[in-house]
Design a protein around this nucleic acid. Structure first.
Length: 433
RNA sequence: GGUGAGGUGGGUGAGUGGCUGAAACCACCGGUUUGCUAAACCGGCGUACGUGGAAACAUGUACCGCGGGUUCGAAUCCCGCCCUCACCGCCA
């Protein structure tokens, strides 16, 4: 969530930034409402603090009087009773203020949850994916370029690499079963991606795949995307939709040592997404599934350095695609297409030559303090006050679409060639019938 | 899953109704002393929000796992939940 301080102090900048997202008037109206509520919160606290202070004084007096009363001073005992009545009145007022305060804070937080992050300066205006800015194109998409061939789902069947029908039997649609060289390729990619990230200075972590409510709230999955997560209701755990959730929450409610920044973590996890409402050619084959593997990189950065770190992450992700030799492009997402919590997002897309469409394989974002404010992830340098860190994350990379891209791009009459960098990991260089 | 013990500041740990935002020690920071280092000594050393202030800072309130309750007054008593440890059961 946005910092209330920022909204108060730089309201114009906040509103100007948010208009890039094409928000409704209603949401923009929340800004003013939040400030009003915050004022109310302050007034309530001021009064309540004063009453609490006076009741503390009374309590001490009463204590003294009761002691005197116990040693026979009837006058004191009487006075104690009188004061008790007085305090009872104060207490009543305090509890009144208390419940008002709870309501105000609740409403304020509810509204703050509805206000998305402020897009960075470079974010283009726009509503739709078409408005995204192509910042790099490293692919030949012309008709006479390498094109055609079988789509990956047919290749998967032909070479027995994965089986959707079997997945449906075991679970339901969108849960593919990888097998044979398909499974080996999957595993090879995971290890390759992790090794590359470790080489780039990321520490590997293996987090839990189920998280509690606090953790899901921390990264904004709750309440915004409740319906997107699988929910184990008996224990009230959520299956993670991305490693971002547990990994970013590692430092929830922590004050980090400023000299430890940036902190870089990489995690491989399966990801679970209900994808309610998706349909059509988007969900064909591996394009969109309910369970998939992903290697995620996460950084906790000093606010002054976070855009340098973002660039570093972009370079890292790009290097993976270059090493795999796949055609790709990089998009800077427009205000309307960007995630709710992000300040700046770059998407990496691989060109599917058989489907003649772009497949998103990575999304790299700087969240600035939007997540860290919610999670209270701060750092301190020397004796300074704690300050919110910037959080960043990106896929490096999301597996199924990379597999799709590789299968389609590297298919030949002899079979599917394995990119050279992967061969040490797969142990074979060709997938044949 | 059952039984028992327990959750206090960065760490160890005292504290069973008021004088405790919390002893003491360790760690850490500043200073004195000192050829240097160490030791010794002195001082400081949580977070959030409010109020005043340009700021340094001062001050009020809250916080002793979390949430309720009892009481004039709760770290301390009561209830619920979470977690940790030990033993038993089950088991990869």
């Amino acid at each position: 969530m946005l910092e209330i301080k920022l909204i108060r102090e730089e309201k114009d900048r906040v509103i100007a930034g948010l208009t890039k997202r094409n928000l409704s008037e209603e949401i923009l109206g929340y800004i003013d409402r939040v400030v009003v509520l915050d004022d109310e919160r302050k007034n309530i606290q001021r009064e309540s603090d004063e009453l609490l202070a006076s009741s503390k004084v009374y309590a001490k007096q009463i204590g003294g009087l009761i002691q005197k009363g116990n040693s026979g001073d009837l006058e004191a005992a009487k006075k104690a009773e009188a004061l008790k009545n007085e305090v009872a009145g104060i207490k009543e007022r305090i509890s009144e203020l208390d419940s008002r305060s709870k309501n105000v804070v609740q409403e304020m937080n509810d509204l703050l949850y509805e206000i998305p992050n402020i897009p960075a300066h470079v974010v283009p205006k726009g509503k739709l994916p078409e408005d995204n800015e192509v910042v790099k194109l490293n692919a030949d998409t012309s008709e006479n370029a390498k094109a055609g061939g079988l789509p990956h789902w047919e290749l998967g069947e032909k070479y027995r690499l994965f089986d959707f029908t079997l997945g449906t039997k075991l679970t339901g649609s969108g849960f593919p079963v990888f097998m044979g060289k398909g499974a080996a390729l999957e595993r090879a990619l995971i290890t390759f991606f992790i090794n590359e990230a470790v080489k780039a200075g990321y520490e590997e972590v293996i987090p839990p795949l189920l998280v509690n409510e606090d953790t899901a709230r921390g990264t904004g999955q709750l309440p915004d995307k409740e319906g997107q997560m699988y929910h184990a209701t008996k224990d009230n755990f959520y299956l993670i939709p991305t490693a971002e959730v547990p990994v970013t929450n590692i430092f929830r409610d922590e004050i980090l040592d400023g000299s430890s920044l940036p902190i870089k973590k990489v995690a491989y996890t399966p990801c679970f997404r209900r994808e309610a409402g998706s349909y059509g050619s988007d969900v064909k084959g591996l394009n969109r599934v309910h369970q998939f593997d992903k290697v995620e990189i996460v950084q906790f950065s000093h606010p002054d350095k976070s855009y340098d770190q973002l660039q570093e992450m972009l370079d890292h992700v790009e290097s993976l695609l270059i090493k795999l030799g796949l055609p790709y492009r990089i998009l800077r997402l427009c205000g309307g297409d960007m995630g709710f919590t992000s300040a700046l997002t770059y998407d990496f897309e691989v060109y599917s030559i058989a489907q003649k469409k772009w497949l998103e394989v990575s999304s790299v974002s700087n969240f600035e303090t939007y997540q860290s404010n919610r999670m209270k992830i701060r750092f301190r340098s020397g004796t300074e006050k704690p300050t919110l860190v910037h959080t960043l994350n990106g896929s490096a990379l999301a597996l199924p679409r990379i597999v799709a891209g590789i299968l389609e791009y590297y298919q030949t009459n002899e079979g599917i060639k394995i990119p050279e960098v992967l061969q040490p990991y797969t142990g074979f260089d060709l997938i044949e019938k």
